[in-house]
Amino acid sequence: MNLPANDVARLHTESGAAQFAVSLEDFTAWLAPLGALESARLSEVVLARACARGNPLAWEHFINHYREKLYAAGIAITRDETRGRELADSLYADLYGTRVQDNGSRISKFDSFVGRGSLEGWLKSVLAQQQINRFRRERNLISFDDSIETAAAAADSPLPVTSDQQALATATDGALADLDAEDRLVLASYYLDQRTLSEIGRMLGLHESTVSRRVEKITNRLRKQIVARLTKAGLSRRAAEELLETDVRALEINVREKLAQERRA
């Protein structure tokens, strides 16, 4: 963001940089890599950078304004009060920065905030990332049993793949690859992650009825495209449709067989 000196001086005052003892030179240097920002975002960037530098006033301001929000976000993410508070508290070390660079300055998590979104939203995202990282770590710790379980399950059901089924898989993969990224995200969220329509709606900023219509539309289009691809691969239209239906029936049988095996075991 290259601005005339007068504007920089004005922003320096308006953003609270002066309040946190940020020099005009440092402020100008911070502005340079930033894109156009709303004034509210700029104030948040200044607060974050001042916290990263360890300014006590900035930290006081941050604690006063964001502590409870952090707890609320942590509790909402973990769905547990104790864990949520613990997750939120664990973030402060990263925000303050425990690692030290060669030049002696700390590496603060705040440095990565550049104000594309709100500071509150950024804190939520960082908390969510922390939570997922915990899951990853726990998954790694317990993955031995889990991997045995998964491998055993895979070994138990070596599904025979016919050339037709292979053709169907290839056609489906091709149709999925042709989809718009957002459509694929909707499908993955709905069919793979089993998220509700309203959850997907909130993820993408859409109403759940819009998501519902979109899921239906994408699914219908995919069916048509799969049949078209199978036809292009040499099957008649009727054979392609039958293959899709046959495979569907086979999948149902597989599920039933698997349940029956589990009951027997």
């Binding site: 990332q129 993955a188 909130r202």
Partner: peptide, 16 residues
């Protein structure tokens, strides 16, 4: 669309 962890993060952020 291809990363389950990032979908989870986005979901946690937006469904909080």
């Amino acid at each position: 669309a291809d990363c389950v962890d990032c979908r989870e993060i986005l979901s946690l952020v937006t469904n909080d």
